[in-house]
Write a protein that binds this DNA or RNA. Sequence first.
DNA 1: TTGATATTACGAAACACTTCGTACATTTGA
DNA 2: TCAAATGTACGAAGTGTTTCGTAATATCAA
Lengths: 120, 120
Amino acid sequence: MKPTTSEMEILQVLWEKKSCSVREVHESLNKKDVGYTTTLKLMQIMLEKGLVVRDSSSRSHIYTANITEEQTQTSFLDKMIDTVYHGSTSRLVMQALGHSNTSKEELAAIREYLETLEKS
Amino acid sequence: MKPTTSEMEILQVLWEKKSCSVREVHESLNKKDVGYTTTLKLMQIMLEKGLVVRDSSSRSHIYTANITEEQTQTSFLDKMIDTVYHGSTSRLVMQALGHSNTSKEELAAIREYLETLEKS
DNA sequence: TTGATATTACGAAACACTTCGTACATTTGA
DNA sequence: TCAAATGTACGAAGTGTTTCGTAATATCAA
C-alpha cells in the first residue's frame, strides 16, 4: 500500500496530532488554493483504502492513521532502493550523506550506530 | 522533473546500454504482458518531456537518456527526505542501514566515508 | 423558530499515466 | 516485384488522483 503525495501530507498531520477532524487536517495543511471538500474527499478515499479509520459517533468525524509512520517510511525506502538504486543500500546512504549538510552531531550518531552494526 | 515508474524502467535500460532503439529497450524490459507500441509511446512521451533525446536519421530511431542516473537518484532522494522524513537525512540513513542487510565491506566503506565527512 | 453556518456524501470534471489498435511508411526477402 | 515484416505516429480507452460544486443534514445563535 503506497499512499499518494496528497495522502502523505494528510498522514503527516494525523501522525503528529494523533486524531483529527477533517477541518483540523485541512487547516494544518493550509493550502491556499485547495478547498475544504477536497481534503474531505481525500480522507474519505483514504478510509476506503484503509489508510485511516474514523470515529463517526459525533457529527464531525474524527480520523486516525491506520498505518504507522515508520511502516510507511520503510515501505517507501524499500521501493526506492529497488527501483532507483538497483538494490544498493550503501549507494543510497552515501548519496544521502553527501548531498545534504548533516550536522556533526547527526554524523556522529550515525557513525556510532554503524559501529554497533559492524560488531554484530 | 520526476520520471514515472515506467519511465524509470526505460531509463535504467538507456543508462546501462547508452543508446538503444525502442525494440532493444522493449526486449530488455521483457514485460510479458505489455505490447511494443506501449514502450514506443512511452518513449515518445519521454522525448516530449525532455527525458530522452533521439537520433532519427535512420528509420529505427536511436534513443539516449537526457538526464544522468545520479541526477535522477538525488532528485528522488531529496523529494523523499522532504515528504517522507520531514527533512531528516539521518533518520533515513539509519533506517536504510537497519533495514537491509548490508555487507561488512559496505558498512566499512560507509564508515570511512563518514569519517572523512566528520573531519571536514 | 428560523436563518446562517458547518459537516458529510457524492457525482463529475480535469488531468496524468499506461495501454493498445490502427494507419501509414519503409525495408526485406522470396 | 510485391507481400510480409518492421518501424513510427497518433487517437482513444481505462484507470487513478486531485479538484470542486451541490445536495442533504445537523448545529447554533439571535
